[in-house]
């Protein structure tokens, strides 16, 4: 039995766990620079997480086991998702356990439980966050699947490794549907990871919170897990976009040198995607909740146009 894929798998999960705080630190740094502030440095998220892990848990009186279980579940599904997306190599053992639909569903189950945790305490904020989150998700998910289906139809597979291999092999070059699907994917990533203009990760203002409202009552290690999972999710979406639409540098040879090269390319792509993210966030304002219909509607439109373009223009 060839052990190499398993090594890559473990390495990749370690990378996702290890790099995601730095990635978030990078995004925050860029944001500070763009707004003329001094940044807290690349490693501030690590310090935040460490601090939270060290703290004791303060739990609301009527929190049930759902509330306490949710951070672990969110963390677990996000780690699994990190093992599924082929970031270093297309030959990952976990990649076969789940295709892209399962990936979307994994994020959905994390969201389902986070929303439940928001309702568990019985505060107005928690319910508000859950309600908004589920509304946004129900509009974003069809668009997400549509964007991905465009790729799946073109590559005749829903397996991520297979999609990446097909796109990487150059059978698909400059194609309109890829562009459409990519644009749709960008919009959806903003919604799914809770960035401006859909949600503001840096706010605690009651009218604008979505994700923060649900996790308001968390503290200590629970909060650390949720924050960490959130960081991983952001990085995973960026990596997913990078790997699906720009799969350059990914390791298809299954060699150590290939893996190192893939890692360097990944860093480069993540850095670039951070820049793009910050540009979008600085350029846009947070939208009203009901303007989101138009925002996510456009994402759906783009994804659908991508699918139509696949049939019409090819």
């Amino acid at each position: 039995m060839n052990l190499y894929p398993f090594m890559t798998e473990i390495l990749q999960i370690m990378i996702v766990l290890g790099i995601s705080p730095a990635f978030v630190g990078w995004v925050r740094m860029l944001k500070c620079w763009s707004q003329g502030r001094t940044s807290a440095g690349l490693f501030q998220p690590y310090r935040d997480i460490r601090k939270l892990f060290a703290k004791n848990v303060v739990l609301a009186e009527n929190a049930s086991w759902v509330f306490r279980f949710t951070p672990y579940l969110v963390f677990g599904t996000t780690v699994l998702a990190g093992g599924i997306i082929p970031m270093l190599s297309v030959d990952l053992p976990l990649s076969a356990t789940a295709d892209v639909i399962v990936l979307v569903a994994l994020f959905a189950i994390a969201r389902f439980f986070t929303a439940l945790a928001g309702m568990d305490i019985g505060t107005a904020f928690g319910g508000m966050g859950s309600s908004r989150e589920m509304t946004i998700a129900s509009l974003a998910e069809p668009a997400m699947l549509m964007a991905i289906f465009t790729l799946s139809l073109a590559c005749r597979s829903t397996s991520l490794s297979q999609i990446v291999t097909v796109i990487f092999s150059g059978q698909i070059q400059l194609r309109p549907y890829l562009a459409f699907a990519f644009l749709a994917f960008v919009l959806i990533s903003l919604a799914e990871t809770g960035r401006i203009p859909v949600d503001n990760p840096a706010t605690h203002l009651e009218l604008t919170m979505v994700h923060e409202a649900m996790i308001l009552e968390y503290s200590g290690r629970h909060l650390a897990l949720i924050e960490w999972a959130g960081m991983m999710k952001l990085m995973l979406f960026m990596a997913l976009g990078a790997v699906l639409f720009f799969p350059w540098g990914i390791d298809v040879t299954a060699t150590a040198a290939g893996a190192v090269r893939a890692f360097l390319f990944l860093l480069l792509k993540l850095g670039a995607s951070g820049v793009v993210l910050v540009l979008i966030e600085t350029g846009l304002a947070k939208m009203r909740l009901f303007r989101l219909t138009e925002f996510l509607g456009s994402a759906f439109l783009l994804a659908t146009l991508g699918m139509l373009a696949y049939y019409i223009l090819d």
């Binding site: 672990y72 599904t77 976990l94 789940a98 597979s157």
Partner: peptide, 17 residues
């Protein structure tokens, strides 16, 4: 074309938890 492994998804998530 597509694959899904229920046991592995369940077990990996459970073990991480």
């Amino acid at each position: 074309r597509a694959s899904y492994s229920g046991p592995l998804v369940f077990l990996v998530t459970l073990s991480v938890i």
